[in-house]
Amino acid sequence: MVLPLYSLNTLRLGYSIVSCTFASTAKIFVAGDLKPSHISLQNHLLHRSITSKISADRHNFTVAYLINSCGLSPEGAISSSKWVELQSSQGADSVLALLSKHGLSETQISKVVSSRPAILVADPEKTLLPKLEFFSSVVVSREDFARILCFNPHLLSRSLENHIIPAYNFLRSLISEENVVAVLKRSSWIFLENRRKNVVPNIELLRELGMPQSCIASSQH
C-alpha cells in the first residue's frame, strides 16, 4: 500500500517527536540518578567546614602568640589579630629578635606590635633590617632610635629607597643633620607624608611670602 506524501511527512514528524521525548526523558533520568548538585553541595559544605577550622586554629594561635611573645593584653591581642594572621612563630620570632637587637625593650616592642601588628609578617632581612640600619646610622643614640620607632612604628612600613631616603635628603637640604634628628624625635610624620604634595608647596609659599631660609629651616623642627 502506498501512503500519500503528507502521511509520510506526518509519520516522520511523529517519530521525531517521540524520539526527542524519549531522549530527553533518558537524559533527565540519568542526570537525576547521579545527583551532581547533591554531591557538589556536600563537597562545598565539607570544604567550608575544613576552611573554618583552619582559620579558627590560626586565629587562636595568633592571639596566643601576641599575648605570650609580644606582651599584649588579651583584649589588645584580639584587636590586633584582626590585622595579622601568623602561620607559625618562626618569622615573627625573627622580627622580635631583630627589634630587640636594635635596642628596643620588651615594653617598646609590645607598643610597636600593638600599633603595627603587620610588622610580625614582614621579612626581617629584606624589609626591616635595611630601614633599621639606616635610622640607626642617622640617630646617634640607640635609646633615641628606640623611642622614635616606638612612637612611630609606621616608619618601617615606608619604602627605604622611594620614601625614607628621599625624605631625609630633602630635610638635609634645608636643615643640619642634627636638626634632622630633632625632626625625627618630635615630628617624624614628615617621613610619612607625601613631601611633594604637602611639604614642598608650603615651603615654596613661605619663600614667596619672603620668609628667610633660616626661619623656614627652624619651622621644620
Rank of each mutant, 00 (worst) to 15 (best):
N202E: 15
R142Y: 13
L184N: 01
I54N: 05
T62N: 10
V199E: 11
S115N: 03
Y6M: 08
E75N: 12
L13K: 10
L3N: 04
W189F: 06
H102K: 08
F191Y: 04
A146N: 09
H44Y: 12
I78W: 15
F145D: 08
R186G: 01
F134L: 05
R158A: 09
L209K: 13
K111A: 13
H163N: 03
L205Q: 13
L104G: 00
N43Y: 07
I39R: 12
D57L: 14
V84I: 06
R116N: 07
H163Q: 04
S73V: 00
Q220A: 12
I203R: 02
M1S: 05
S157E: 11
F22D: 14
Y6I: 04
I148W: 12
L174H: 09
A122I: 04
C20R: 14
I216V: 08
P166D: 05
G14A: 12
S219E: 14
G14F: 10
L46D: 04
V140E: 13
R12E: 09
S89K: 10
N179E: 15
P117N: 00
L156T: 05
F145E: 11
I109L: 01
S110K: 00
R147H: 13
Q213R: 10
E161Q: 08
L104W: 01
A56I: 03
P201A: 13
E125Q: 11
A146G: 05
L184F: 04
G71F: 05
C215G: 01
L46Q: 05
R196M: 08
L98E: 03
S105D: 02
K197Q: 12
S105L: 03
L160A: 10
S159Q: 04
T25K: 15
P74N: 11
S115I: 00
R172C: 06
F145Q: 12
D144E: 15
N68D: 13
S105V: 01
P124K: 03
S188L: 06
L99R: 02
H102M: 07
Q220C: 12
S159Y: 05
D144R: 15
I54K: 06
L46C: 01
S24R: 07
V18A: 14
S49G: 01
I175Y: 06
V181P: 01
L5Q: 11
R186I: 04
L174K: 06
V18I: 09
S40C: 03
E177H: 10
S40P: 00
I119L: 02
I17L: 08
L66F: 08
G91W: 13
L149A: 14
S159H: 04
A122M: 12
V183E: 13
L128G: 00
C20S: 13
P4E: 13
S141K: 15
S16W: 13
S187D: 09
I67K: 14
D144A: 15
T10I: 10
L34V: 09
G76W: 02
S80K: 06
G71T: 02
N194H: 12
L98Y: 03
V113R: 01
I119C: 00
N202I: 14
S157M: 05
S159E: 09
A118Q: 08
R195T: 05
F61S: 07
S88K: 10
